[in-house]
């Protein structure tokens, strides 16, 4: 089914000399980290929805206790520090991997893991306490929003801890290779991102709640 080629005058374009590769970074590392960045953007929106839900329901206590009655800023401060230092430890692990110092990498990862696990433990203690006092998520829209927002963040941290553990094994067995470095970089993006979200949680949920 061939047809004669027909030339129309609008079609005589100047051939452009620009034939460079349109994106200079097409290697697997760049595409993977970029793709993960895009995933983090979707996570931003997920958290944003939970944040705005919290904002809409923050005063819907249904006659129950308000934030002032429930939150303890000392605990929140400790959680903030723990998570922040865990984030830095993760960064130090990456820096050690640049120098191919496998043992140091695993040590810093372990530090990040322990700090992250402490964060989850403290948060679980806070949640259990609230539930035992009768202030569980079933009490009001405010408490539902609180547990969902803070709980989702905690769940992300927990998944991150599992991932971190798997990464520690991989680094132990495979050493620092292009593959494990790529995976470590992606993990560190995730871990820093969670600390970023926590900034907004301690500000909007806890600090503003106490004002």
């Amino acid at each position: 089914m061939s047809r004669p080629l027909t030339l129309h005058h609008q079609d005589t374009l100047e051939a452009h000399p620009d034939t460079r590769v349109p994106d200079p970074h097409q290697d697997v590392f760049s595409t993977t980290t970029f793709g993960f960045w895009v995933y983090l953007m979707t996570d931003c929106l997920l958290f944003a929805t939970f944040f705005v839900t919290f904002a809409v329901f923050h005063d819907r206590t249904f006659g129950g206790p308000s934030p002032k009655d429930l939150f303890d800023l000392k605990t929140v401060f400790i959680e903030t520090m723990v998570l922040l230092f865990s984030s830095v430890a993760c960064g130090l692990a990456l820096l050690s991997s640049l120098k191919l110092e496998k043992t140091k990498v695993i040590i810093w990862m372990a530090v990040a893991f322990l700090l992250g696990a402490s964060f989850v433990a403290i948060e679980l203690k806070e949640f259990t306490h609230l539930v035992h006092e009768g202030n569980s998520w079933e009490r009001s829209a405010f408490l539902s929003s609180f547990f969902t927002l803070v709980g989702t963040h905690g769940l992300h941290v927990s998944v991150g801890l599992l991932w971190l553990m798997v990464m520690m094994f991989q680094v132990f067995w495979m050493g620092i290779t292009a593959l494990t470095f790529r995976r470590l970089s992606v993990f560190s993006m995730f871990w820093h991102f969670l600390d970023l979200i926590w900034i907004f949680i301690f500000t909007f949920v806890y600090l503003m709640g106490m004002v």
Binding site: T53, T61, F62, E138, S140, S144, S145, T148
Partner: peptide
């Protein structure tokens, strides 16, 4: 939970 129920202030 009580996001969308009027009971509980949703």
């Amino acid at each position: 939970m009580h996001f969308f129920t009027s009971y509980g202030d949703g």
